[in-house]
Nucleic acid binder design. Sequence first.
DNA 1: TTAGGGGTATTT
DNA 2: AAATACCCCTAA
Length: 850
Amino acid sequence: MSTTKEPARCTPPSASTFSFTAPFSPASALKQRRVSLALPSSPRLVPAWSFRDDSGLDSHVAETSGAMSEKKGSKMRKITADDSERDEPATSALEKKQRKKWTEEETQMLVDGCNSWGVGNWKAILKDPKLKFDNRSPVDLKDRFRTYFPDAYRQHYPNAKTHLSSRVRSTLPDGTSIFEKTRSKKRRPFTAEEDQALKAGYERHGTVWATIVKDPIFMEQNRRSTDLRDRFRNAFPELYQAAGYKPRNTPKKKKREVEPAKRAATDDQLAMSSNSAGPVRRRRAHTTQGWYRGGTKSVPESTTCSEDESSGDEEEQQAIPKSRRPGASGTIPQAEESSLSDAPAEADMDAIEPLSEPLSIPDYIGSSQSLSEMTDSSQSQAWSSAMDARPWSAGSPTSSHMSSDYLLNQSPYHRRSDGMNMIGKSAWGTQDWFSPNPRLDPSGLSSGSSSYASGGISPAPSSPFSFHNLNHGVLDRYDLFPSSFPHDFASEVGAGDSHSTFSDPEMFPSSNFSGFTHHSNYAGDLIFGARSHQPQPSSYGSGFGFGTPGLGLTGVPQSTGVHPMQLHTSSLPGIDEIELGAINLNDQVDAPHDAMEGTTSTGIQKNSSERPMGIADLNHFNLSSHSLGLLDLPDDFHTTPPATPVTTSRSLQRTSSHMHHMASTHGRSISVPPSEHRAGPSRPPQTHATSQPLPQSVPPFSPTSFPQQQVDVEQFSPSPIPQQTPYGQDIQRPPNDLYDLPFLDLHYYSSNHSALNLAAMNDTASKDDTDSSRRGQALDLAQAASSMKPVGVHHPLSLGQHITQSFASAAGKLHLSHHRGQSAISPKDLLLRKGSDNKRKRSSWDGGAS
DNA sequence: TTAGGGGTATTT
DNA sequence: AAATACCCCTAA
């Protein structure tokens, strides 16, 4: 009793501790902290229903088969005893909290929360009514995040020197982080009724979209006023112009130019970026990043950031093209201006990674622009998803640890880069501990060749949405690659939904904001400034399955049965759920989940053979199908490229990590807060603005689902690895459910055949063809995973190579973010390595293992 | 409030 | 004993 907390009194730290600590900054040093961007804080939480709680079940899976890694003990914990205690003696209670193990449920909540609110917004997460935590404090959440998702932690908190570990739980199979935020909403094409209502509304209210949007029909669709404007623009271009707006895509004019300055400009801005104000900012920022846009993000902080940025990127991308575009300059409004500046960057990009670009670009572009019509943006993550592959799930037993490296790999960026360059199978070939997955290889290779395509593709999927609307847009994008089309598409792109996306949060029904910050009520004028922050509100999963593409969490073990999918399905309403679904922790473990996840995650991609593909594929397909349909692109196209690159990244990280990062760390001047979300206003997740869209989408997921899995990958190891039979797993799983979603989505969006394909795929593994790319991805992942985890394993791959190549690009992307400029890759990244060294102390626990 | 570092209770 | 998971403290 007594002193409980005292600061550590004497406790001599283990030697280890000091040992390193710092080369530089000794303890005191300073860490930089995150700047907290802003935490917008506030996302209002929507009341959301809390279904999720199901918690009841929880229990951590206790047995679930044994897998429990950590948990096992949990049950035992004395702590439990506390429960009773808690009350009692204040003493203990007061003094210290007893240890409470985290349950999977809680962990899942955490994940969900991170996705909804952004990593680092612990409070917000804690407050989220939807999320239930067992008397945890924000710090607890943070700690859990740190300990359970060390890999993610590293990404989000590059400055952290301690607690390093290489466990990877936070990454999805695709490599994307579960925590990413993604926000994307899905696009929901305007229905005839809506168009009608829109027109009628226009006739009645003019361009006062805010008024028009009040029409129940729009409310139901969660359309934002900007969405209406965008749709109006597309659907009734003439009226739109008549109303004084600049026509967006109209082929005829490209842009109106000029006039716009007033509002038109606004419009563009709006359209272009949600962050109107931001556009400039962003752009700038991007500028640097511009080159990889795809990667985007430099994400200074976290991976997540991508979102914002991603959105921003989108803009940028758009911008880029624009900038490029010939005449654009004049016309270009503010946004463009910024973009202009970027232009150079763009060029760089091309130079650097031509291929990669496409990826992101498409997505963004497409999304942004076309979105308008659809209004949604779920794909955002597409890019990320594209990457996905679930190595571990597939089979990397070992993968359990992959972690850091893995992450790196994950990053789309990396992928891209690698893919572009090296990839090929080589990378992965080397490693594959997974060897078992033969398929992967091929793909990888293919990817190499196709990398470009694939690269482009990956994003593409996401973009698909956009495509829906703007077919041409899509094409354009693609064209872009080659370089063409600037204006048109650019213009459209500019348009933007991005903002809309953001706005969504605000829009939420529940809150009914009266005012949208951004846009003024009048047409076109969105102001927008507001949004700049918000990046991600996590996705809402829209009703469609795909909403959450990127999120799928794998890390968390639990997922027991329900999961996200269920949630969504049943509860359409909650975006969160959807997100969750995406996010769910399913740890890598479950392949099945993966499927689900995949689904959710639009991206998809990689999955490939190993993975079931199911969902993912579906999603993937969706995209592709859409796009294809529209574009006629081959599946491959969509498919993301192989992820081979992954390896690369990892290697990089690994390599030097500690040291460097330490150093860097010290320097840490940069802090990078995890702000991804934060940075932006995190949107209130709950709203789910888009959710519900399709009843269809509500497939029944069986709640039951999987028993568990625990989580830790490790345990997983033996597991079934589907390497070769990717589908198999999925299939096993309740494909129906999974598929259902996807299908639904697919259908909804576009193609039936996609569904079919999926089905086919499922059955056979044949899909390979289609997905060749996926496979590649998978491979990549595999590599990553492989290397990562096993302690010993190294992926020989190529640090050097990757590093070199990717370094610039990839490194820059990810890590750079932090430092942004400072160290290139930042040692931090490198940290990953397995571990051992770093800091030690903590390292060990982190998993350092070694 | 959070990031980041440290400590300790537990588990392996 | 090492590793781990959870808790705390403190600087910013």
